[in-house]
Design a protein around this nucleic acid. Structure first.
Lengths: 221, 221
DNA sequence: TGTACATCAGTGAACGCGCGTTCACTGATGTAC
DNA sequence: TGTACATCAGTGAACGCGCGTTCACTGATGTAC
């Protein structure tokens, strides 16, 4: 087995490292795109792109799974940053829902593969893999929940189960995003409009249930 | 290139066929399961399981993609049958939402790989592949929409955009199902309860919006 | 400062493997008469 | 009915390929004195 990736924890001897984890990650990101999934990358391919021997990959990562998790974590935090900014900006404007969804959809059509990584790898690959995506989604839910609670308080509104609301919205938006990824770009505006209405359905439902919880028992439909 | 899969359209001559498409499909289904995705199957592996030469695969399918699409279509229609039955039964009982979600979750824990196929392959594989999954999801949405409209009429309720409602519910349920697939089974009841509430949020929202569409303009949260 | 030495980042070559696909072939099943 | 023949479903062997991983090695960089 190759030596553990964080190479010498104690004292640094020998040659100075010239390859970094970041170089390998950058190479992998260059290979990814709207039509390429992390799980379809091969070790040799990434090494080739990074300009190193296939062998040298092991100095930075234990295996491809470890690289994939690093990519997912990176994509998640970068995306949360972007969406967070968008929500911040939108707060001063008319609609937070519209603003956030628009930022999300715009990210989808950009060259940044972050969102594509999260959308694609949720249902495929190793367990560590899927757990990494799930962890990132949980971060999104958490931030959204915080935002929902704050906004509700500011508007003197109440929400039924804000955590579940945030989860429903997050999962729905990501699911729709995964569909949108493969759509011709002229159909995206339609999907965006649909998504906004869907999110508002959930929010309206949450608000209604908060003031009128017996709706929850309403049997049909 | 091997001859086109529907072998001789005109007159049947030569040997009688002893391998059928169904044999190959059955072999593939045997290999699939909660931890095995269609896209991870290899041609040789399926042929091995079917007890035929790798070569002979080509007599039935052009390539693995064609087999995958057949599997997806099969899974979709089998699953719609199951959920349809459940809804039918539930209609006479208390709650259609609960009944349907329960049928869905039960299917998730069964040995039938149909649902797993649809859940996993939505975001991976070739285009033909993803289109096949999307087509099946559209069928689900269509049936759900019909049901929603009928039930709403029976209850003298109105719905805002039933088609979008059906789409939101379908996508959300499948997204949550994909998560559930990898969960230890003791956590499934929690997730099921959450899912039921989420679906009711959407339904409550739709009902509220139908009678009070100015909620749609409500800016926040 | 200079010298001897230890470390270890990175490499080149090779391994065995399972893959998809092609080829030329066999022989059972059907048709023609 | 029997015989000659055409068809083509299914096969066995082989191909070249890219893969992940291992091995023994090199030589630049640091430390000790």
């Amino acid at each position: 087995m190759p030596p553990a990736p964080p190479p010498s924890p104690a004292i640094a001897l020998g040659r100075k490292s010239v390859i970094s984890r970041e170089d390998v990650i950058a190479a992998a990101l260059k290979l990814l795109g709207p039509h390429r999934s992390v799980s379809s990358l091969s070790l040799r391919e990434v090494a080739r792109e990074a300009g190193i021997a296939p062998n040298s990959f092991y100095r930075q990562f234990r295996d491809m799974d470890e690289l994939a998790v690093a990519l997912i974590d990176l994509a998640g935090s970068s995306l949360r940053q972007i969406i967070g900014d968008a929500r911040q900006r939108a707060r001063t404007n008319r609609s937070v829902v519209r603003g956030s969804v628009e930022a999300f959809m715009q990210q989808l059509t950009s060259n940044d593969p972050s969102l594509h990584i999260l959308l694609r790898e949720g249902s495929v690959g190793s367990d560590a893999f899927k757990q990494a995506v799930d962890r990132q989604l949980n971060f999104f839910e958490e931030e959204l929940k915080t935002d929902l609670v704050r906004l509700a308080a500011a508007n003197h509104t109440e929400l039924y189960e804000p955590a579940l609301t945030a989860k429903a919205i997050t999962r729905l938006v990501f699911a729709m995003g995964a569909t949108a990824m493969d759509l011709p770009s002229d159909q995206l505006p339609v999907l965006k409009a649909q998504l906004i209405i869907m999110v508002r359905m959930i929010l309206t439902g949450t608000r209604t249930l908060a003031t009128n919880p017996k709706e929850l028992q309403a049997d049909l439909p």
